[in-house]
Every structure is written in C-alpha cells, then in structure tokens.
Design a protein around this nucleic acid. Sequence first.
DNA 1: TACGATTATGCAACTTGTTGCGCAAAGGAG
DNA 2: CTCCTTTGCGCAACAAGTTGCATAATCGTA
Lengths: 190, 190
Amino acid sequence: MALAQAILTSLLEKPCTGAELARRFDKSLGHFWQATHQQIYRELGKLEQDGLVRAHGLAATRGQQRHFEVLATGKAALESWCAEPGEPRPIRDELLVRLRAAAVLGTVDVRVELLRHQGMHAQTLDRYLAIEANDFPADAQKTVADELQFAVLRAGIVYEQSWLNWCEQTLSHAPAIQKPALVEVWPPAD
Amino acid sequence: MALAQAILTSLLEKPCTGAELARRFDKSLGHFWQATHQQIYRELGKLEQDGLVRAHGLAATRGQQRHFEVLATGKAALESWCAEPGEPRPIRDELLVRLRAAAVLGTVDVRVELLRHQGMHAQTLDRYLAIEANDFPADAQKTVADELQFAVLRAGIVYEQSWLNWCEQTLSHAPAIQKPALVEVWPPAD
DNA sequence: TACGATTATGCAACTTGTTGCGCAAAGGAG
DNA sequence: CTCCTTTGCGCAACAAGTTGCATAATCGTA
C-alpha cells in the first residue's frame, strides 16, 4: 500500500523514468521497501490514471522512455497520506516458523540455519553501517531532512542488530538442539 | 509460503477443526504469523488435496465441522521444509516510508505518529514479557522443545524492544521536526 | 548494413493476504 | 415450536507481490 507513496517521494526528489526509479529503489529506498520493475510500472500507470503524476514523453508504444513527474495533486495526496496513522508490521519471519516446527518435530538441527541467518544479518548490518559512516558522520551538522533520513537508516541498523543479537543468544542458549544419531522409525500417522 | 507449515505444526501438536486452528493462531502462533480463517480454510483445502492432511468428518456440506489430522506424508513434508534454507525478511514498515516522505516534503510533523508507534510497541512488548514470566520462568528446567519455543518468544521481545528503542532515540534526536506555522503556498507543479 | 546485446516498457499468470458476504448447523430464549 | 444469535465453513472479489516472457528502441560491432 505504501508503494505508491514511496514512488511519489522518489519522484519528488527527482523526476525520472520507470527504469531509473527501479534502479533507485535498488539502492536507497530498497533497503526498507523493495519493488520489482513490474510493480513500479503498474503503480505508475495507476498514479497516472489518478492524475497524481504526469508522463512527459507520452509515447504509448513499448520500449519508449516515459519520463514521470509529480503533479500538485500528487504532492497533496502524499502530504495527506503522510499524516495518516498506520499500523506497525509484526515480525513475520519464516525462521520462527521453522523453529516452532523443529520444537514439535524434535528431529531437525536448526543451528546451521541460525548460523546462516547470523551471517546474512551481519552482512546487511555492515552495509548499513558503511552508509552511516559515509552519509551521516557523527560530527556533521544535520538538517531536519537529514535527521529524518538518518532515523530511517538507524531503524535498519537496530533491526539488524537485534536479529544478530538474537541469533547469538539463541545459538549459545540452545547448544543441545540437534538431530538425533538415528532418525526415528517412520511414524504411522494414519 | 510458511502458512501451510505453520498449520501442519499446529495440527501436529493437536488435531482440530479449522475454526479451532484460527483460534489457536490468534493466541500463540499468531504473535509471529497471522492468518485469517479464510486463509486457513483455503490452505487446509490444498493440504488435503495434496494428501498431507486428512479430514476426519468429511462432510462436504457447509456449516459442518471438519476435524483435521496430519498424515505421515505431511509430517515428512514438514521435516524436509524445516531443513530448507530461507531468507530473512527485510524491514518493511510503512512508518519508514512516511519518514522518508516527510524528509522530502518538510511540512509534516511525524512526532505524533512516532509516539503512537512507541505506545503500540510498548504494549506488544508487555504482552510478550507477560508470556515469558508465565511460561518461561528463569529458574525452570527447559527441554529442547521449550528452549526453541522460548527462542521464538525472545525474537518477538527483542524485535519490539529494538523498535521501542528506536522510537525513543528518534524522538529525542529529532525534536525539531515539526510542521511550520504557516503551510506553504500551493506549489504549481505543472 | 546487419546482427546481437542491452535497455525500457509492458502483458499474463500465479501466489499470498484481505475483506465482505452468504449459508448451514447448533443452541438458547420466548 | 419458532425466532435469533452464535459458530463453523466457505465463496467471490480484490490488493499486493512475484515470475516469466514479449516487444520495441538503442547502441556497439562485425
């Protein structure tokens, strides 16, 4: 639901084509809101229909670049959405379902997967920390806009840190979780 | 994608009807994996078609209770899925899009929304902590299964704590974020 | 010029999750 | 018994996200 607003925000910063948007999403915005190019093109189509953005090169043929720009109505819509209340997303990580299943089954070693996740979260955290060091040095003066963008980055940082923390803690607290030497005999459930 | 596995897990613990499953999801499993009753019924249908679960009272008429039970193939499928590697979910919170938009717009006060989220995360954290105090007292002996279930709960706890932390930090670091006294004149974007 | 790779755009089909509604059985109140 | 509410089950439609493929321009190169 926030894809349209993310696109509007990005287009407000700088009007561009759909492909350029997709590329920008892969970089900055994509850290916390991913979108494929198909999603973006579809959403751009809706936004255009709703009169929130305008295509500059309005070629209806394929393969032709279409340059998009936010209209005043689009900016107003973004402003009004921005002030709306919203619900925070609960955790919804497959890994937790796997742990729950492993608890019931009792025959699966989850430590390998925990180590994998630990590594992935560490890698993502490093990426975020590199961005922080690069774009938000501690001694720099920050405008209000900088402060807000930094807050978004910090959300990513604390998110990854907390997962990392949890992985370590879980690995150390649960060293006994392992597959038994012999797999149990096929259980006749029916 | 993990809904089928979550259902299998819950059914393995105790066979039951779809409605009972939905109720259980609202309690334990629902803390980290939500599902409406429609999702659950649809998924149960697929699982039955695939021969992973069996309906006890196989009444095809509406309004009739159908009691579900995991078959051996279902347990095997769950075991094999459980050992598969998976990707961690990146953050994807609308609030971050709002902050990003606010940074670009410069006319929206985000502190109210930050306070709201702070309150909601605090509330969820309290729920989790109550469960911890109730089900996982520090001095109790834990089996491997207990340890795993506790790990799942701790994931929820650190998740909420990190958001809470971030809210506080953001609110204190960015006290200057506010709507200007006068809204700027309508900008002619076209 | 012709050919192939790249870039930009888009369609179609599918999965997952959400919302709103409808229908049937069960059980209590009048 | 009849009416009404609750409970269990399910359909239909939609929104959001993913995957695979198709088509048109563009550009370098043989």
